[in-house]
Design a protein around this nucleic acid. Structure first.
Length: 293
DNA sequence: AGGGGGACCTGTGCGC
DNA sequence: TGCGCACAGGTCCCCC
């Protein structure tokens, strides 16, 4: 259930397993996820070596030794499981997997893609809802790929500045909540971290985007940067534990200030407000009406 | 042209 | 225990 910090956590977990390894064998266990796999998906991956594993927004990009790029997205429910070369089982769901039988990992109902690497490691992509995707592109034309071409700035990058937001939000009559979820402006923010960033910036999710410029866009820029960086750090620390214990990648516990806390007391110092849940463009927004204006 | 709402899927948790 | 409903961290596409 990944937003950008989870995707980055997954990337960091997969990087040492995948990079430098040859893909010996690939099982593609159904024809499609969110949309069909490329027709020659398995044959184009087999025998390739992974040279790098990068991330753009919520996409993971595996660069292969023939110039191809494997584009992967986790959707809402995508996970990766790893079986280490020594056979150490690393699946989280004990009802489905028995760690005494790591070879069974990849046999689950929602295990759609299985990579077997030259060093004996196995990497499994599991995605119950199948909103994720895998496809292939070329390194040279990657930026023009339809999935990536229109994407906005990274939330932790230097390109995210108050000025950038001022320009992007000028004349926008949509609520700031919706504008922040627009991947063409900032790429990689999802529902949770938009709620969290707006809380730390003290901005109501209902406020119109065009009313942000000024003090608020400075606070918002800082809040986005900080909330994402902190979540990546938290993912990084939980990742260390996970990899040693069960190896599940794609999910970590995180403390949220407002998300999922409807009816609870606002955590801001000295605020007596109560977290409220409203629905905006079909999705839940959590906020404190008292300190978010 | 931009933005809201539905569509795509399965699983889970809750109230009755 | 079972059923039906609401809801879930994403994104695309269509229509107004």
């Amino acid at each position: 259930m990944p937003e950008l910090p989870e995707v980055e956590t997954v990337r960091r977990g997969l990087e040492p397993v995948l990079v430098g390894q040859q893909i010996k064998h690939v099982q593609q266990r159904r024809a499609d996820l969110r949309f069909p796999f490329p027709p020659d998906f398995v044959s184009r991956l087999k025998g390739r070596k992974v040279e790098a594993l990068r991330r753009r927004a919520k996409y993971m990009l595996a660069e292969l030794d023939d110039g191809a790029v494997l584009i992967m997205h986790l959707g809402m429910s995508g996970r990766f499981y790893i079986v280490a070369p020594n056979g150490q089982a690393t699946a989280p769901d004990t009802r489905v997997y028995d760690s005494a039988h790591p070879e069974e990992i990849g046999e689950g109902k929602h295990d759609h893609v299985v990579f077997d690497l030259a060093n004996g490691a196995r990497v499994v992509y599991c995605d119950p809802r199948r909103f994720g995707l895998m496809t292939l592109s070329d390194r040279d034309s990657l930026e023009d790929h339809p999935l990536l071409a229109a994407m906005g700035v990274e939330p932790t990058g230097n390109a995210l500045t108050p000025d950038y937001l001022n320009t992007a939000f000028r004349d926008k009559k949509t609520p700031i909540k919706a504008a922040l979820l627009d991947q063409r402006i900032i790429a990689g923010l999802g529902n949770i971290y938009v709620c969290e960033a707006l809380f730390y910036a003290g901005i109501s999710p209902k406020r119109l985007a065009k009313s942000i410029p000024g003090k608020r866009s400075a606070r918002l820029t800082e809040a986005i940067r900080t909330v994402i960086r902190r979540a990546i750090e938290a993912g990084g620390s939980s990742l260390r534990d996970y990899v040693q214990t069960d190896g599940e990648l794609g999910y970590f516990q995180h403390e949220f200030a407002v998300y999922g806390r409807e009816g609870e007391k606002c955590v801001a110092k000295g605020c007596s407000g109560m977290v409220k849940r409203i629905v905006q463009s079909g999705r839940s927004s959590f906020y404190c009406p008292k300190c978010q204006r």
